[in-house]
Design a protein around this nucleic acid. Structure first.
Length: 464
RNA sequence: GUAGGCAUAGCUCAGUUGGUUAGAGCAUCAGAUUGUGGUUCUGAGGGUCGUGGGUUCGAGCCCCAUUGCUUACCCCA
């Protein structure tokens, strides 16, 4: 048989039955918590119009969008346009002629599109959750895939900071239910970052500033300073930044120092006030913030890349595991503005299900149970026993017992091996003896014991 | 886009300074056992050593190119 080397595109994976059980456990756990907090599920198409997505994720992001080639003779269509095939930078122009659809890059932008499209049917504030795969044309590496699932919850049309506080509770509850108890939920506020850039006198460099100080954990203070210099900050700017970057202590202590540093920045103070309000909500919701399983940490070096965050920024890390963040989110004041609907604020979070899977695997947090699929296998000796077994098969299934009849009269050894490989806990043997006596043999695959039972007893045994 | 590592059976990998017919474990199939799995024993099938070129009497091994995978950087879940 001629064989081709089989593979899947890099950064993508197959999921085996065993893996799917675990994955669904994660999805179900997260979804249950979302619903409990009043979020409703929606889905959007895997592909969006290309122009819905482009320009929303920055230049780097745009490059990582998987574009779908037009059907038909796109080459001729491109020729008719004024594409210069010798131009090194001509591919961007060409793209617009040969591709008009793309795979979704995240769930937030399609959601914004959804809200604008269906604004007349939506009761605001609108709380939705969405669990679907997204695609990024990235270089895969540990914990980074080209196809992965996000579990997003967002609310639009409410500027209350109660939402932010509840998202922290959702993170805490969902991750705790999954067995992830050693987790840090980092929180920051874009307005604090703006305030810092303001007092340095370089508000236009806020993105460069945040990208650089975000790496403190990774490259250390010297690395951050070098990067800041490369990005256009002076030595005296950095002197002003240093105390802020190196801020330490409890959340309360950090807030107190920030208040002093940012005293002249109205924006910065507003950011601090928002954080304080969120903490206050948390306290009232939990009676003690320390009742939460996760550690809540104000971290002003936290600056997720997404350019549209305007208020709170979240990031979630599993401690003791060398994998990037397992979740993130934040507030964006003008979520739908890019699609022409102004003045709608949104705030949301995302769980990275694939990374949570990797972390749980590494920490061995998956429960043993729920692995069994079929509960009973009926063996198949010959045509007569097969015919005898069919009504029983139907009867067991009608009682919601997952049952299968081995579909051929293969050797018993083979049938038993099949049951074993599939971890089926019970096997019913029906041969000429059983048909004659009406007593069927039920074998418990775990203990190996066998019993002769009539139908009533058998069903009794299996429905226990 | 930048830099490193790897590529040998379905899977995980050995393979000596280059030397006869390329091995193991797992998996699969068959038998020991014609009505009994998971343990055991015996046997079998399965390879263009990623691809193309070069050096050599001789290449899985050395050299060049190429493709794929992978790790790190940028960026991100």
């Amino acid at each position: 048989m001629a064989s081709i080397k089989t593979s899947v595109p890099k950064g993508t994976r197959d999921f085996s039955p065993v893996e799917m059980v675990k994955r669904n456990y994660i999805f179900d756990t997260i979804k249950t918590v979302f619903r409990k907090y009043g979020y409703q599920e929606i889905q959007t198409p895997s592909m969006e119009n290309l122009d819905t997505l482009t320009g929303k994720y920055g230049d780097e992001g745009d490059k990582l969008i998987f574009k779908i080639l037009n059907s038909g003779n796109f080459l001729n269509a491109a020729r008719k346009k004024d594409v210069d095939f010798t131009d090194e930078n001509g591919s961007a122009k060409l793209t617009s002629y040969i591709s008009e659809k793309a795979l979704r890059y995240d769930l937030t932008v399609p959601f914004a599109r959804y809200v604008v499209m269906h604004q007349n049917d939506i009761a605001f504030p609108f709380k939705r959750f969405q669990v679907q795969p997204v695609w990024r044309a990235d270089r895969p590496q540990k914990g980074r895939y080209r196809e992965f699932y996000q579990c997003d919850a967002d609310v639009v049309g409410s500027d209350s900071l109660l939402n932010e506080a509840e998202f922290i509770l959702i993170y805490d509850e969902a991750l705790c239910n999954l067995g992830l108890t050693d987790v840090t939920i980092k929180i920051n506020n874009r307005k604090i970052l703006s305030g810092i850039a303001e007092i340095i006198g370089k508000p236009e460099l806020i993105v460069d500033m945040t990208v650089a100080i975000d790496k403190l954990d990774k490259i250390g203070l010297d690395g951050v300073i070098n990067e800041l210099l490369e990005r256009g900050f002076t030595a005296s700017d950095i002197e002003k930044l240093k105390p802020v970057i190196l801020l330490e202590g409890t959340n309360e202590e950090k807030i107190a120092s920030l208040k002093a540093v940012l005293a002249v920045s109205a924006t910065g103070l507003k950011g601090i006030a928002e954080i304080e309000t969120i903490f206050k909500y948390l306290k009232d919701l939990t009676s003690q913030i320390s009742n939460l399983k996760s550690q809540i940490q104000l971290d002003i070096t936290l600056a997720r890349g997404l350019n549209y965050y305007t208020g709170a920024i979240f990031e979630v890390k599993a401690n003791g595991v060398s994998i990037g963040s397992i979740g993130g989110g934040g507030r964006y004041d003008d979520l739908t503005g890019m699609f022409g609907l102004k003045g709608l604020t949104g705030v949301g979070i995302s769980f990275g299900a694939d990374r949570i899977y990797d972390v749980m695997e590494e920490l061995q947090l998956f429960p043993e149970s729920a692995n069994e699929t079929t509960k009973v296998l009926i063996t198949n000796f010959d045509a007569e026993s097969e015919r005898y077994a069919l009504p029983l098969l139907t009867q067991l299934r009608s009682l919601q017992i997952a049952t299968e009849l081995y579909p051929a009269s293969a050797k018993l050894k083979k049938q038993m091996s099949y049951a074993d490989a599939k971890q089926i806990p019970f096997v019913i043997l029906i041969g000429s003896e059983e048909i004659q006596s009406g007593k069927l043999t039920l074998k418990n695959m775990k203990t190996g014991e066998q019993q002769q039972l009539d139908r009533e007893q058998l069903i009794q045994k299996l429905t226990d």
